[in-house]
Design a binder for these strands. Structure first.
Length: 210
DNA sequence: TCATTAACACGGG
DNA sequence: CCCGTGTTAATGA
């Protein structure tokens, strides 16, 4: 595991910290679709992503979902950080978008390393910052973009995290993630295809403009 | 005006 | 057949 750790975090963490991560971290591999964090659950450890991608969702009282952003290689979960500090339940759901490898770090180490390692402190602050930016982007998308633009952005983001311009997803899946109905998704996807932005196939969509 | 809901036909696996 | 897809008509915000 130390090899993959070095590959993804070696340039960020000093050697002593790398050694500690290697000692206390638990390597974990989860399949696509696996729920890593459920809404309302307490968080006992924080994930460091080695490979793959994780989808972060919000859910309303009716159980309707809305996608916030994706976590990728080298990212960590900001919700975990905030939960560690406040000792509160998770407000989000985290689902593996692809097969994902990660290292779980016990939360107690969080604050310990914060004062012990400058590189860890930087990593956490940097991580918080980029998650904040992604949240703003998500808010912008909901508030200012029309649904067709949101779908295109969603498809581009998705193509980005899975590293493939062909996405295997149904119209219904998109409707759930963007919190709308399948009819709208079908109609807008059709117009996007006519505009030569995407190609539609059964259970797969190819993004042409990246 | 535009989204949602329900309903239906088409067709590929 | 089952499910994903494309469309339409009615309804509501």
């Amino acid at each position: 595991m130390i090899d993959e750790l070095k590959l993804n975090y070696g340039h960020l963490f000093e050697d002593a910290l790398m050694q500690e991560v290697n000692n206390v971290g638990v390597f974990k591999e989860v399949p696509k679709g696996f729920t890593l964090i459920e809404i309302g659950s307490y968080i006992k450890s924080m994930p460091l992503l080695l490979s793959g991608a994780i989808k972060i969702l919000r859910e309303d009282d009716n159980g309707d979902e809305l996608i916030l952003y994706f976590l990728e290689r080298g990212d960590t979960c900001a919700m975990t950080l905030s939960c560690c500090i406040g000792q509160t339940k998770s407000k989000i759901r985290a689902i593996a978008e692809t097969d994902t490898k990660l290292i779980m770090i016990p939360v107690q180490k969080m604050s310990e390393w914060m004062s012990k390692y400058k590189s860890w402190q930087n990593f956490i602050l940097q991580s918080y910052h980029s998650r904040m930016m992604e949240l703003l982007e998500a808010i912008d998308a909901i508030a200012f973009l029309k649904m067709d633009e949101r779908i295109l952005k969603y498809l581009k983001d998705k193509a980005m995290v899975i590293g493939n311009d062909v996405i295997n997803v149904t119209h219904q899946d998109i409707a759930y993630d963007l919190h709308t109905s399948r009819v709208v998704v079908s109609r807008l996807l059709k117009t996007l295809e006519i505009d030569k932005k995407i190609e539609l196939h059964r259970i797969s969509i190819k993004v042409l403009e990246l």
